[in-house]
């Protein structure tokens, strides 16, 4: 097989793949009113990188918000949550018990 034939075969394979993959994708579109199942594309997607419970959580949900939870600030340095303990109060007030 000469180089040109090999290239033509490779190109034909590429376009055949494009068409078959697109057809599979379009056929996998969810149908309104039906519970989504595990489609071929979902399987082809590979391995999910997070635990099931974490997948829908917004990443960095606390970033940019004035929540000191888990940042270990205030007068208690370290990794402990200071939220709700008054340690973040910049007037030095103590938490109410």
């Amino acid at each position: 097989m000469n180089h040109k034939t090999a290239s033509n075969l490779a190109l034909a394979a590429a376009f055949a793949g494009l068409l078959s993959g697109t057809t599979a994708r379009l056929n996998a579109q969810p149908v309104s009113g039906h519970e989504a199942g595990v489609s071929g594309a979902a399987i082809a997607a590979g391995v999910a990188m997070t635990a099931q419970d974490d997948q829908k959580l917004p990443k960095h949900s606390c970033k940019g918000k004035n929540d000191c939870k888990g940042q270990g600030g205030g007068k208690n340095a370290g990794k402990n949550s200071c939220k709700g303990k008054g340690d973040c109060a910049t007037d030095g007030s103590k938490p109410k018990n």
Binding site: A13, A41, A44
Partner: peptide, 14 residues
């Protein structure tokens, strides 16, 4: 050839 077809198919499916 098979790899090329498979790669294009997978990529367009996803």
């Amino acid at each position: 050839v098979a790899t090329i077809q498979q790669t294009f198919a997978l990529s367009s499916e996803l």
